[in-house]
Nucleic acid binder design. Structure first.
Lengths: 246, 246
DNA sequence: ATAAATCTTTGACTCAGATCAAACGGGATT
DNA sequence: AATCCCGTTTGATCTGAGTCAAAGATTTAT
Protein backbone atom coordinates (compact mmCIF):
# COMPACT_ATOMS: atom_id res chain seq x y z
CA UNK A 1 0.00 0.00 0.00
CA UNK A 2 2.77 2.46 0.89
CA UNK A 3 5.22 3.79 -1.63
CA UNK A 4 8.66 2.25 -1.20
CA UNK A 5 10.73 3.64 1.66
CA UNK A 6 13.11 6.16 0.13
CA UNK A 7 16.84 5.95 0.66
CA UNK A 8 17.97 7.53 3.91
CA UNK A 9 18.55 11.24 3.65
CA UNK A 10 21.36 12.63 5.72
CA UNK A 11 20.23 15.14 8.35
CA UNK A 12 23.05 17.42 7.22
CA UNK A 13 21.47 17.88 3.81
CA UNK A 14 17.85 17.52 4.91
CA UNK A 15 15.59 20.17 3.39
CA UNK A 16 13.81 20.80 6.69
CA UNK A 17 16.96 20.71 8.79
CA UNK A 18 16.69 24.34 9.87
CA UNK A 19 12.97 24.50 10.53
CA UNK A 20 11.89 21.15 12.01
CA UNK A 21 11.96 19.91 15.56
CA UNK A 22 15.69 19.22 15.12
CA UNK A 23 16.47 22.80 14.06
CA UNK A 24 18.38 23.68 17.20
CA UNK A 25 20.34 20.44 17.47
CA UNK A 26 24.15 20.31 17.50
CA UNK A 27 26.00 17.90 15.25
CA UNK A 28 26.27 15.22 17.94
CA UNK A 29 22.60 15.49 18.78
CA UNK A 30 21.79 15.18 15.12
CA UNK A 31 23.87 12.03 14.92
CA UNK A 32 21.90 10.56 17.80
CA UNK A 33 18.64 11.41 16.08
CA UNK A 34 19.98 9.90 12.88
CA UNK A 35 20.27 6.51 14.56
CA UNK A 36 16.60 6.39 15.51
CA UNK A 37 14.96 8.02 12.53
CA UNK A 38 13.35 6.32 9.55
CA UNK A 39 11.43 7.57 6.54
CA UNK A 40 7.93 6.72 5.43
CA UNK A 41 6.07 7.67 2.28
CA UNK A 42 2.38 8.14 1.75
CA UNK A 43 0.37 8.59 -1.42
CA UNK A 44 -2.00 11.46 -2.02
CA UNK A 45 -5.31 10.71 -0.31
CA UNK A 46 -3.84 8.14 2.03
CA UNK A 47 -4.68 8.27 5.72
CA UNK A 48 -1.64 8.55 7.98
CA UNK A 49 -3.32 8.38 11.36
CA UNK A 50 -6.88 7.79 12.55
CA UNK A 51 -8.19 9.68 15.55
CA UNK A 52 -8.18 7.39 18.56
CA UNK A 53 -5.47 5.11 17.20
CA UNK A 54 -2.52 4.30 19.38
CA UNK A 55 0.36 6.37 18.06
CA UNK A 56 3.65 4.58 18.27
CA UNK A 57 5.58 7.16 16.32
CA UNK A 58 6.01 10.89 15.96
CA UNK A 59 7.70 12.72 13.14
CA UNK A 60 8.16 15.62 10.78
CA UNK A 61 6.71 16.24 7.36
CA UNK A 62 9.67 16.33 4.96
CA UNK A 63 7.78 17.00 1.76
CA UNK A 64 4.13 17.17 0.74
CA UNK A 65 1.06 18.39 2.56
CA UNK A 66 -1.20 16.75 5.12
CA UNK A 67 -4.33 17.85 6.92
CA UNK A 68 -5.40 17.45 10.52
CA UNK A 69 -9.15 16.99 10.81
CA UNK A 70 -11.78 16.41 13.46
CA UNK A 71 -15.07 14.69 12.69
CA UNK A 72 -18.47 14.48 14.36
CA UNK A 73 -20.50 11.26 14.24
CA UNK A 74 -22.86 12.69 11.67
CA UNK A 75 -19.97 13.37 9.33
CA UNK A 76 -19.46 17.08 9.81
CA UNK A 77 -15.74 17.64 9.62
CA UNK A 78 -13.48 20.52 10.48
CA UNK A 79 -9.86 20.84 9.48
CA UNK A 80 -7.88 21.96 12.50
CA UNK A 81 -4.46 22.18 10.95
CA UNK A 82 -2.57 22.16 7.70
CA UNK A 83 0.73 20.32 7.93
CA UNK A 84 3.51 21.61 5.70
CA UNK A 85 7.13 20.53 5.37
CA UNK A 86 8.91 20.80 8.76
CA UNK A 87 5.66 20.56 10.74
CA UNK A 88 5.59 18.03 13.55
CA UNK A 89 3.07 15.21 13.89
CA UNK A 90 2.18 13.52 17.14
CA UNK A 91 2.29 14.45 20.76
CA UNK A 92 5.01 13.24 23.08
CA UNK A 93 3.52 11.95 26.28
CA UNK A 94 0.20 10.92 24.82
CA UNK A 95 -1.02 7.49 23.84
CA UNK A 96 -3.80 8.02 21.33
CA UNK A 97 -4.09 10.32 18.36
CA UNK A 98 -6.57 13.15 18.79
CA UNK A 99 -7.13 13.85 15.08
CA UNK A 100 -7.22 12.27 11.68
CA UNK A 101 -4.10 12.97 9.65
CA UNK A 102 -4.46 12.60 5.88
CA UNK A 103 -1.89 13.14 3.14
CA UNK A 104 -3.40 15.46 0.53
CA UNK A 105 -0.40 15.16 -1.75
CA UNK A 106 2.27 12.50 -1.98
CA UNK A 107 4.16 12.91 1.24
CA UNK A 108 7.36 11.85 3.01
CA UNK A 109 7.70 11.81 6.76
CA UNK A 110 10.79 11.55 8.94
CA UNK A 111 9.61 9.32 11.78
CA UNK A 112 10.83 8.37 15.24
CA UNK A 113 9.38 5.64 17.37
CA UNK A 114 7.70 7.46 20.20
CA UNK A 115 9.53 5.99 23.20
CA UNK A 116 13.09 6.54 21.93
CA UNK A 117 12.12 10.05 20.86
CA UNK A 118 10.69 10.85 24.27
CA UNK A 119 13.83 9.55 25.95
CA UNK A 120 15.96 11.60 23.64
CA UNK A 121 13.82 14.68 24.28
CA UNK A 122 14.29 14.31 28.03
CA UNK A 123 18.07 14.31 27.48
CA UNK A 124 18.14 17.04 24.82
CA UNK A 125 16.80 20.45 25.83
CA UNK A 126 17.40 21.70 22.29
CA UNK A 127 14.67 19.40 21.02
CA UNK A 128 12.24 20.15 23.82
CA UNK A 129 12.84 23.84 23.42
CA UNK A 130 12.29 23.80 19.67
CA UNK A 131 9.14 21.74 20.10
CA UNK A 132 7.81 24.30 22.58
CA UNK A 133 8.53 27.08 20.14
CA UNK A 134 6.78 25.22 17.31
CA UNK A 135 3.81 24.39 19.52
CA UNK A 136 3.44 28.04 20.53
CA UNK A 137 3.45 29.01 16.86
CA UNK A 138 0.79 26.42 16.11
CA UNK A 139 -1.27 27.71 19.01
CA UNK A 140 -1.08 31.21 17.54
CA UNK A 141 -2.12 29.87 14.15
CA UNK A 142 -5.03 27.98 15.69
CA UNK A 143 -6.18 31.10 17.50
CA UNK A 144 -5.91 33.21 14.38
CA UNK A 145 -8.06 30.60 12.69
CA UNK A 146 -10.63 30.82 15.51
CA UNK A 147 -11.19 34.45 14.51
CA UNK A 148 -11.57 33.39 10.88
CA UNK A 149 -14.08 30.66 11.75
CA UNK A 150 -16.04 32.61 14.32
CA UNK A 151 -16.28 36.07 12.86
CA UNK A 152 -15.39 36.34 9.19
CA UNK A 153 -17.75 36.27 6.21
CA UNK A 154 -17.45 33.61 3.51
CA UNK A 155 -15.57 35.99 1.23
CA UNK A 156 -13.18 36.99 4.01
CA UNK A 157 -12.64 33.36 4.87
CA UNK A 158 -11.59 32.50 1.33
CA UNK A 159 -9.31 35.52 1.17
CA UNK A 160 -7.81 34.52 4.53
CA UNK A 161 -7.02 31.04 3.27
CA UNK A 162 -5.44 32.38 0.10
CA UNK A 163 -3.42 34.76 2.28
CA UNK A 164 -2.11 31.90 4.40
CA UNK A 165 -1.04 29.96 1.32
CA UNK A 166 0.47 33.03 -0.35
CA UNK A 167 2.44 33.85 2.81
CA UNK A 168 3.84 30.36 2.98
CA UNK A 169 4.84 30.32 -0.67
CA UNK A 170 6.42 33.74 -0.34
CA UNK A 171 8.52 32.52 2.58
CA UNK A 172 9.83 29.73 0.36
CA UNK A 173 10.76 32.12 -2.47
CA UNK A 174 12.12 35.07 -0.52
CA UNK A 175 12.30 37.74 -3.18
CA UNK A 176 11.53 40.77 -1.04
CA UNK A 177 8.54 43.03 -1.51
CA UNK A 178 6.64 41.28 -4.25
CA UNK A 179 3.30 42.72 -5.16
CA UNK A 180 1.88 39.96 -7.31
CA UNK A 181 2.27 36.23 -7.07
CA UNK A 182 1.13 32.91 -8.47
CA UNK A 183 0.71 29.60 -6.69
CA UNK A 184 -1.08 26.28 -6.84
CA UNK A 185 -3.89 25.56 -4.40
CA UNK A 186 -2.89 22.40 -2.55
CA UNK A 187 -6.50 21.71 -1.60
CA UNK A 188 -9.70 20.65 -3.31
CA UNK A 189 -12.78 22.83 -2.91
CA UNK A 190 -14.07 20.33 -0.40
CA UNK A 191 -10.89 20.48 1.67
CA UNK A 192 -11.08 24.26 1.53
CA UNK A 193 -14.66 24.12 2.81
CA UNK A 194 -13.58 21.83 5.66
CA UNK A 195 -10.87 24.29 6.60
CA UNK A 196 -13.18 27.30 6.46
CA UNK A 197 -16.34 25.91 7.99
CA UNK A 198 -18.30 26.41 4.76
CA UNK A 199 -19.93 24.20 2.15
CA UNK A 200 -18.02 23.47 -1.02
CA UNK A 201 -20.71 25.28 -3.03
CA UNK A 202 -20.11 28.46 -1.07
CA UNK A 203 -16.36 28.09 -1.55
CA UNK A 204 -16.86 27.76 -5.28
CA UNK A 205 -19.19 30.75 -5.45
CA UNK A 206 -16.85 32.98 -3.49
CA UNK A 207 -13.88 31.93 -5.58
CA UNK A 208 -15.89 32.92 -8.64
CA UNK A 209 -16.83 36.23 -7.03
CA UNK A 210 -13.21 37.05 -6.15
CA UNK A 211 -12.27 36.19 -9.73
CA UNK A 212 -15.04 38.36 -11.17
CA UNK A 213 -13.90 41.24 -8.95
CA UNK A 214 -10.32 40.88 -10.12
CA UNK A 215 -8.90 39.96 -6.72
CA UNK A 216 -7.61 36.70 -8.15
CA UNK A 217 -7.03 35.23 -11.60
CA UNK A 218 -7.66 31.52 -12.12
CA UNK A 219 -5.91 29.26 -14.63
CA UNK A 220 -7.76 25.98 -14.49
CA UNK A 221 -9.10 25.08 -11.06
CA UNK A 222 -5.95 25.10 -9.05
CA UNK A 223 -3.51 27.71 -10.32
CA UNK A 224 -4.13 31.11 -8.71
CA UNK A 225 -2.55 34.46 -9.51
CA UNK A 226 -2.97 37.35 -7.11
CA UNK A 227 -2.30 40.56 -9.03
CA UNK A 228 -2.33 42.75 -5.91
CA UNK A 229 -1.51 41.13 -2.59
CA UNK A 230 -2.46 44.25 -0.65
CA UNK A 231 -5.94 43.96 -2.10
CA UNK A 232 -6.15 40.33 -1.04
CA UNK A 233 -5.12 41.19 2.52
CA UNK A 234 -7.82 43.86 2.62
CA UNK A 235 -10.39 41.34 1.46
CA UNK A 236 -9.27 39.01 4.25
CA UNK A 237 -10.12 41.70 6.79
CA UNK A 238 -6.61 41.62 8.24
CA UNK A 239 -5.63 44.90 9.79
CA UNK A 240 -2.05 44.60 8.65
CA UNK A 241 0.03 42.74 6.10
CA UNK A 242 1.48 40.70 8.94
CA UNK A 243 5.00 41.66 8.02
CA UNK A 244 4.58 40.09 4.62
CA UNK A 245 5.95 42.95 2.59
CA UNK A 246 9.21 44.82 3.04
CA UNK B 1 -6.35 51.78 39.75
CA UNK B 2 -5.23 48.31 40.78
CA UNK B 3 -6.37 46.65 43.92
CA UNK B 4 -3.64 46.60 46.57
CA UNK B 5 -0.96 43.98 46.07
CA UNK B 6 -1.84 41.08 48.35
CA UNK B 7 0.61 39.72 50.88
CA UNK B 8 3.04 37.21 49.37
CA UNK B 9 1.70 33.71 49.26
CA UNK B 10 4.20 30.93 49.82
CA UNK B 11 4.60 28.61 46.84
CA UNK B 12 4.33 25.69 49.23
CA UNK B 13 0.74 26.55 50.09
CA UNK B 14 -0.18 28.09 46.74
CA UNK B 15 -3.57 26.90 45.46
CA UNK B 16 -2.23 26.38 41.93
CA UNK B 17 1.04 24.80 43.02
CA UNK B 18 0.29 21.43 41.44
CA UNK B 19 -1.23 22.62 38.18
CA UNK B 20 0.64 25.75 37.08
CA UNK B 21 3.87 26.14 35.16
CA UNK B 22 5.75 25.38 38.40
CA UNK B 23 3.94 22.08 38.94
CA UNK B 24 6.97 19.90 38.27
CA UNK B 25 9.47 22.00 40.21
CA UNK B 26 11.51 20.62 43.10
CA UNK B 27 11.75 22.49 46.38
CA UNK B 28 14.97 24.26 45.44
CA UNK B 29 13.58 25.31 42.05
CA UNK B 30 10.51 26.62 43.79
CA UNK B 31 12.70 28.67 46.10
CA UNK B 32 14.43 30.20 43.10
CA UNK B 33 11.09 31.05 41.53
CA UNK B 34 9.96 32.52 44.83
CA UNK B 35 12.73 35.12 44.67
CA UNK B 36 11.56 36.51 41.33
CA UNK B 37 7.81 36.27 41.61
CA UNK B 38 5.41 39.01 42.59
CA UNK B 39 1.62 39.25 42.76
CA UNK B 40 -0.69 41.59 40.99
CA UNK B 41 -4.42 42.07 41.35
CA UNK B 42 -6.95 43.20 38.79
CA UNK B 43 -10.55 44.21 39.16
CA UNK B 44 -13.39 42.67 37.18
CA UNK B 45 -13.54 44.29 33.77
CA UNK B 46 -9.98 45.58 33.91
CA UNK B 47 -7.70 45.07 30.97
CA UNK B 48 -4.50 43.20 31.80
CA UNK B 49 -2.74 43.35 28.45
CA UNK B 50 -3.48 45.05 25.12
CA UNK B 51 -2.65 43.27 21.91
CA UNK B 52 0.55 44.71 20.47
CA UNK B 53 1.84 46.00 23.82
CA UNK B 54 5.34 45.11 24.84
CA UNK B 55 5.04 42.37 27.45
CA UNK B 56 7.61 42.66 30.16
CA UNK B 57 6.13 39.97 32.34
CA UNK B 58 4.61 36.53 32.14
CA UNK B 59 2.63 34.77 34.84
CA UNK B 60 -0.05 32.44 36.09
CA UNK B 61 -3.63 33.11 37.01
CA UNK B 62 -3.92 32.36 40.72
CA UNK B 63 -7.61 33.13 41.18
CA UNK B 64 -10.34 34.58 39.02
CA UNK B 65 -11.04 34.35 35.32
CA UNK B 66 -9.65 36.20 32.33
CA UNK B 67 -10.35 36.09 28.61
CA UNK B 68 -8.03 36.17 25.63
CA UNK B 69 -9.60 38.00 22.70
CA UNK B 70 -8.74 39.05 19.18
CA UNK B 71 -10.39 42.03 17.51
CA UNK B 72 -10.83 43.24 13.93
CA UNK B 73 -10.72 46.97 13.13
CA UNK B 74 -14.47 47.12 12.67
CA UNK B 75 -15.00 45.82 16.18
CA UNK B 76 -15.81 42.19 15.53
CA UNK B 77 -14.24 40.24 18.36
CA UNK B 78 -13.53 36.59 18.96
CA UNK B 79 -12.49 35.08 22.24
CA UNK B 80 -9.61 32.70 21.64
CA UNK B 81 -9.08 31.46 25.16
CA UNK B 82 -10.54 31.35 28.63
CA UNK B 83 -7.91 31.69 31.34
CA UNK B 84 -8.66 29.86 34.57
CA UNK B 85 -6.60 29.48 37.73
CA UNK B 86 -3.21 27.88 36.93
CA UNK B 87 -3.31 28.98 33.27
CA UNK B 88 -0.24 30.74 31.95
CA UNK B 89 -0.20 34.19 30.38
CA UNK B 90 2.46 35.43 28.00
CA UNK B 91 4.89 33.84 25.65
CA UNK B 92 8.55 33.37 26.50
CA UNK B 93 10.71 34.52 23.63
CA UNK B 94 8.27 37.03 22.21
CA UNK B 95 8.23 40.78 22.57
CA UNK B 96 4.68 41.91 21.92
CA UNK B 97 1.38 40.53 23.13
CA UNK B 98 -0.71 38.88 20.43
CA UNK B 99 -4.07 39.19 22.19
CA UNK B 100 -6.07 41.31 24.55
CA UNK B 101 -6.26 39.86 28.04
CA UNK B 102 -9.14 41.05 30.19
CA UNK B 103 -10.08 40.10 33.74
CA UNK B 104 -13.75 39.11 33.76
CA UNK B 105 -13.80 38.65 37.52
CA UNK B 106 -11.52 40.05 40.20
CA UNK B 107 -8.27 38.29 39.56
CA UNK B 108 -4.85 37.66 41.08
CA UNK B 109 -1.82 36.83 38.99
CA UNK B 110 1.54 35.43 40.03
CA UNK B 111 3.95 37.33 37.79
CA UNK B 112 7.57 37.02 36.72
CA UNK B 113 9.49 39.64 34.83
CA UNK B 114 10.05 38.11 31.45
CA UNK B 115 13.84 38.12 31.23
CA UNK B 116 14.52 36.48 34.62
CA UNK B 117 11.82 33.92 33.87
CA UNK B 118 13.34 33.07 30.50
CA UNK B 119 16.77 32.69 32.09
CA UNK B 120 15.31 30.46 34.75
CA UNK B 121 13.48 28.41 32.12
CA UNK B 122 16.71 27.81 30.22
CA UNK B 123 18.26 26.44 33.43
CA UNK B 124 15.21 24.49 34.61
CA UNK B 125 13.93 21.75 32.31
CA UNK B 126 11.08 21.07 34.73
CA UNK B 127 9.61 24.47 33.90
CA UNK B 128 10.15 24.21 30.15
CA UNK B 129 8.70 20.72 30.15
CA UNK B 130 5.61 21.71 32.08
CA UNK B 131 5.10 24.71 29.83
CA UNK B 132 5.28 22.46 26.77
CA UNK B 133 2.71 20.15 28.30
CA UNK B 134 0.38 23.07 29.10
CA UNK B 135 0.83 24.55 25.63
CA UNK B 136 -0.02 21.23 23.99
CA UNK B 137 -3.17 21.07 26.10
CA UNK B 138 -4.11 24.58 25.06
CA UNK B 139 -3.51 23.67 21.44
CA UNK B 140 -5.89 20.73 21.82
CA UNK B 141 -8.47 23.01 23.41
CA UNK B 142 -8.08 25.57 20.62
CA UNK B 143 -8.56 22.86 18.00
CA UNK B 144 -11.58 21.46 19.76
CA UNK B 145 -12.97 24.97 19.70
CA UNK B 146 -12.29 25.25 15.96
CA UNK B 147 -14.76 22.40 15.45
CA UNK B 148 -17.28 24.21 17.64
CA UNK B 149 -16.86 27.48 15.73
CA UNK B 150 -16.74 26.00 12.27
CA UNK B 151 -19.33 23.27 12.32
CA UNK B 152 -21.71 23.40 15.26
CA UNK B 153 -25.16 24.98 15.36
CA UNK B 154 -25.99 27.76 17.80
CA UNK B 155 -27.67 25.32 20.19
CA UNK B 156 -24.71 22.93 20.04
CA UNK B 157 -22.34 25.82 20.63
CA UNK B 158 -24.14 26.87 23.81
CA UNK B 159 -24.24 23.28 25.03
CA UNK B 160 -20.52 22.95 24.24
CA UNK B 161 -19.70 26.01 26.32
CA UNK B 162 -21.77 24.77 29.24
CA UNK B 163 -19.99 21.43 28.92
CA UNK B 164 -16.58 23.07 29.13
CA UNK B 165 -17.58 24.98 32.25
CA UNK B 166 -19.26 21.96 33.82
CA UNK B 167 -16.16 19.83 33.19
CA UNK B 168 -13.91 22.40 34.81
CA UNK B 169 -16.13 22.73 37.87
CA UNK B 170 -16.40 18.98 38.17
CA UNK B 171 -12.61 18.66 38.14
CA UNK B 172 -12.50 21.07 41.09
CA UNK B 173 -15.07 19.11 43.07
CA UNK B 174 -14.07 15.52 42.29
CA UNK B 175 -17.01 13.58 43.58
CA UNK B 176 -17.03 10.75 41.11
CA UNK B 177 -19.82 9.96 38.72
CA UNK B 178 -22.21 12.82 39.33
CA UNK B 179 -25.21 13.04 37.09
CA UNK B 180 -26.49 16.52 37.88
CA UNK B 181 -24.63 19.66 38.76
CA UNK B 182 -24.99 23.35 39.45
CA UNK B 183 -22.55 26.14 38.65
CA UNK B 184 -22.32 29.86 38.03
CA UNK B 185 -21.67 31.15 34.54
CA UNK B 186 -18.51 33.24 34.76
CA UNK B 187 -19.42 35.12 31.57
CA UNK B 188 -21.98 37.67 30.44
CA UNK B 189 -24.16 36.86 27.44
CA UNK B 190 -21.95 39.11 25.38
CA UNK B 191 -18.77 37.32 26.46
CA UNK B 192 -20.46 34.02 25.66
CA UNK B 193 -21.32 35.31 22.20
CA UNK B 194 -17.71 36.38 21.66
CA UNK B 195 -16.55 32.94 22.64
CA UNK B 196 -19.05 31.16 20.41
CA UNK B 197 -19.00 33.37 17.34
CA UNK B 198 -22.68 34.29 17.81
CA UNK B 199 -24.63 37.43 18.64
CA UNK B 200 -25.73 37.96 22.21
CA UNK B 201 -29.37 37.77 21.09
CA UNK B 202 -28.83 34.30 19.67
CA UNK B 203 -27.09 33.25 22.88
CA UNK B 204 -30.03 34.48 24.90
CA UNK B 205 -32.55 32.74 22.66
CA UNK B 206 -30.72 29.44 22.76
CA UNK B 207 -30.31 29.62 26.53
CA UNK B 208 -34.08 30.12 26.73
CA UNK B 209 -34.64 27.21 24.37
CA UNK B 210 -32.39 24.86 26.37
CA UNK B 211 -34.27 25.94 29.49
CA UNK B 212 -37.66 25.37 27.89
CA UNK B 213 -36.53 21.91 26.78
CA UNK B 214 -35.39 21.03 30.29
CA UNK B 215 -31.70 20.64 29.40
CA UNK B 216 -30.82 23.34 31.93
CA UNK B 217 -32.55 25.09 34.80
CA UNK B 218 -31.80 28.76 35.40
CA UNK B 219 -31.88 30.59 38.73
CA UNK B 220 -31.46 34.24 37.88
CA UNK B 221 -29.24 34.89 34.87
CA UNK B 222 -26.07 33.25 36.00
CA UNK B 223 -26.79 30.19 38.12
CA UNK B 224 -27.22 27.10 35.99
CA UNK B 225 -28.32 23.62 37.01
CA UNK B 226 -27.86 20.73 34.62
CA UNK B 227 -30.22 17.94 35.70
CA UNK B 228 -28.73 15.40 33.30
CA UNK B 229 -25.16 15.89 32.15
CA UNK B 230 -25.42 13.11 29.60
CA UNK B 231 -28.25 14.99 27.96
CA UNK B 232 -26.12 18.15 27.86
CA UNK B 233 -23.24 16.28 26.21
CA UNK B 234 -25.63 14.92 23.61
CA UNK B 235 -26.87 18.42 22.89
CA UNK B 236 -23.26 19.53 22.44
CA UNK B 237 -22.86 16.95 19.70
CA UNK B 238 -19.87 15.38 21.43
CA UNK B 239 -19.42 11.75 20.55
CA UNK B 240 -18.27 10.83 24.05
CA UNK B 241 -18.40 12.15 27.58
CA UNK B 242 -14.70 12.89 27.32
CA UNK B 243 -13.91 10.81 30.37
CA UNK B 244 -16.12 13.05 32.47
CA UNK B 245 -18.02 10.32 34.22
CA UNK B 246 -16.70 7.27 36.05
C1' DA C 1 -36.70 54.84 47.64
C1' DT C 2 -35.87 56.52 43.08
C1' DA C 3 -33.20 57.00 39.19
C1' DA C 4 -29.59 55.57 36.11
C1' DA C 5 -26.98 52.20 34.01
C1' DT C 6 -26.34 47.51 32.68
C1' DC C 7 -27.48 43.23 31.24
C1' DT C 8 -30.96 40.25 29.38
C1' DT C 9 -35.05 38.71 27.00
C1' DT C 10 -38.29 38.71 23.30
C1' DG C 11 -40.36 40.01 18.80
C1' DA C 12 -40.42 41.11 13.78
C1' DC C 13 -37.99 41.03 9.80
C1' DT C 14 -33.83 40.24 6.75
C1' DC C 15 -30.13 38.00 4.64
C1' DA C 16 -25.84 35.18 4.11
C1' DG C 17 -24.89 30.84 3.54
C1' DA C 18 -26.93 26.02 3.38
C1' DT C 19 -29.42 22.70 0.81
C1' DC C 20 -31.09 20.46 -3.17
C1' DA C 21 -30.45 19.79 -7.95
C1' DA C 22 -28.53 19.93 -12.43
C1' DA C 23 -25.02 20.72 -15.68
C1' DC C 24 -20.08 21.36 -16.91
C1' DG C 25 -15.07 20.12 -17.72
C1' DG C 26 -11.02 17.59 -17.93
C1' DG C 27 -8.44 13.54 -17.30
C1' DA C 28 -8.36 8.51 -17.26
C1' DT C 29 -10.22 4.11 -19.16
C1' DT C 30 -11.88 1.28 -22.82
C1' DA D 1 -13.80 8.99 -30.10
C1' DA D 2 -17.04 7.65 -26.57
C1' DT D 3 -17.76 6.80 -21.71
C1' DC D 4 -17.01 7.23 -17.00
C1' DC D 5 -15.47 9.53 -13.00
C1' DC D 6 -14.57 13.15 -10.11
C1' DG D 7 -14.15 17.71 -8.92
C1' DT D 8 -16.32 21.99 -9.90
C1' DT D 9 -19.66 25.54 -11.19
C1' DT D 10 -24.11 27.55 -11.27
C1' DG D 11 -29.10 28.01 -10.31
C1' DA D 12 -33.32 27.97 -7.29
C1' DT D 13 -35.00 27.82 -2.91
C1' DC D 14 -34.87 27.47 2.09
C1' DT D 15 -33.50 28.50 6.76
C1' DG D 16 -30.69 29.52 10.89
C1' DA D 17 -28.74 33.17 12.73
C1' DG D 18 -28.14 38.23 12.31
C1' DT D 19 -30.14 42.85 12.64
C1' DC D 20 -33.02 46.28 14.41
C1' DA D 21 -36.02 47.55 18.02
C1' DA D 22 -38.31 47.64 22.36
C1' DA D 23 -39.28 46.17 26.86
C1' DG D 24 -37.98 43.59 31.31
C1' DA D 25 -34.79 42.56 35.10
C1' DT D 26 -30.80 43.56 38.18
C1' DT D 27 -27.49 46.10 40.07
C1' DT D 28 -25.38 50.57 41.22
C1' DA D 29 -25.60 55.34 42.13
C1' DT D 30 -28.03 59.47 43.93
Amino acid sequence: MNAPIPAQISCATCPIRHRAVCARCETDELEALETIKYYRSYEAGQSIIWSGDVMNFVGSVVSGIATLTQTMEDGRTQMVGLLLPSDFVGRPGREGAAYNVVATTDLVMCCFRKKPFEDMMARTPHIAHRLLEMTLDELDAAREWMLVLGRKTAREKIASLLTVIARRDASLTPKGAVNAMTFDLPLTREAMSDYLGLTLETVSRQMSALKKDGVIVLEGKRRVTVPDLGRLFEEAGDDSDGGFLG
